[in-house]
């Protein structure tokens, strides 16, 4: 129920705001010199001559029936367009999340085991740096370093055109792995590496800092001391006793940060010409493609809500005190 209300709110705000923003989708469509009559005709064809509340109700009626309207600039069904691009963005975001968790956890563990030694200061310094540089700037840095100066990685697209496989789903990475089509997997990862890393770095710093703090607190608790007295080494104590308890406070934060990461895909995908939702969103905004913007924003809202739901479920799964509640 809350979900429906949230989505309705998002839809309403976006619908109104993009109509208040300057720029006219019809003017963008027609060649310069089109006369007022042509514009009025086209406006009527897209229903843009009606009042905003009226337009909203018409659009909402469609959405309820699963019809998200037709893109003005691409002249295609918005629902199909958006769902077509979703897998690319999901795969990129999840890969970035996996990288962020791997880097963040490693740094947190190193910082905890070597606390109050130079290694911890190095970890803190690195975290401060990665956190203060935003994802799109990392993207630009990577393009310059690994795309131009030392061209190790492709800096554009999702897959090499020659390899583009004819798969049943848009989840190329997952499907190529399932089909053991490792040449495609490799090529996809090669393309995704830089954008995913750019998205992952700021999140990895957040994870590293919060998890390290939380681990340090847990490492002082009685049951951890008792585990040390049982003869475990410091590393074993950390992984067996402390990590799971320390992950809990981090998890909530990772959920919130992951929604930022999904937001970050918009610019990063554009930078790397990666064919996902974010790239589509920017084009839609540039073209004042109102129905497409609405569809994309609504989908992002669904993704955010789904993320929070998954975080809550994971939290309950990891914390026995929350079960059978």
């Amino acid at each position: 129920m809350t979900t429906v209300v949230t989505l309705f709110g998002v839809a309403l705000v976006v619908f109104v705001v993009i109509r208040l923003a300057p720029g006219d989708p019809i003017a963008m469509m027609l060649p310069p010199g089109a006369d007022a009559e042509d514009m009025a005709r086209l406006r009527a064809a897209y229903g843009l001559d009606r009042s905003v509340p009226e337009q909203f109700l018409i659009w909402l009626g469609g959405v309820v029936r699963g019809d998200f309207g037709t893109s003005i600039s691409l002249r295609q069904d918005v629902g199909a367009l958006v769902l077509d691009r979703l897998p690319a963005t999901l795969e990129l975001a999840l890969l970035a999340l996996a990288i962020a968790v791997a880097i963040g956890t490693t740094l947190a563990v190193i910082g905890t085991l070597r606390r109050q030694r130079p290694a911890e200061s190095a970890v803190d310094l690195w975290n401060g740096m990665t956190l203060s540089i935003p994802d799109f700037l990392w993207g630009l840095i990577f393009i310059l370093l690994f795309g131009v100066v030392v061209p190790l990685f492709p800096v554009s697209g999702r897959i090499s055109p020659a390899l583009d496989p004819d798969y049943a789903t848009g989840f190329l990475l997952v499907e190529s792995l399932l089909r053991l089509d490792l040449r495609v997997t490799g090529d996809l990862l090669h393309h995704m590496a830089l954008p995913a890393l750019a998205l992952a770095l700021p999140l990895s710093a957040v994870i590293a800092q919060v998890l390290k703090q939380s681990l340090k607190e847990v490492m002082h608790l009685d049951y951890v001391t008792l585990a040390r007295a049982k003869g475990y080494s410091e590393i074993a104590v950390l992984f067996r006793e402390a990590l799971r308890n320390a992950v809990l406070p981090t998890l909530t934060l990772v959920g919130v940060q992951f929604t930022f990461l999904i937001g970050g895909t918009v610019i990063v995908e554009k930078l790397f010409s990666y064919g996902g939702l974010g790239n589509l969103a920017i084009d839609a905004v540039i073209n004042r493609d109102l129905p497409l913007i609405q569809g994309i924003v609504l989908l992002f809202a669904v993704l955010f809500i789904a993320t929070n739901l998954i975080v809550d479920l994971a939290y309950a799964a990891l914390n026995p005190r929350l079960r059978h509640g």
Partner: peptide
């Protein structure tokens, strides 16, 4: 072996 002071904090809750 140690028998700790506070049984509420000496067992891992997870």
């Amino acid at each position: 072996a140690i028998i700790p002071q506070d049984p509420l904090t000496a067992l891992n809750p997870c």
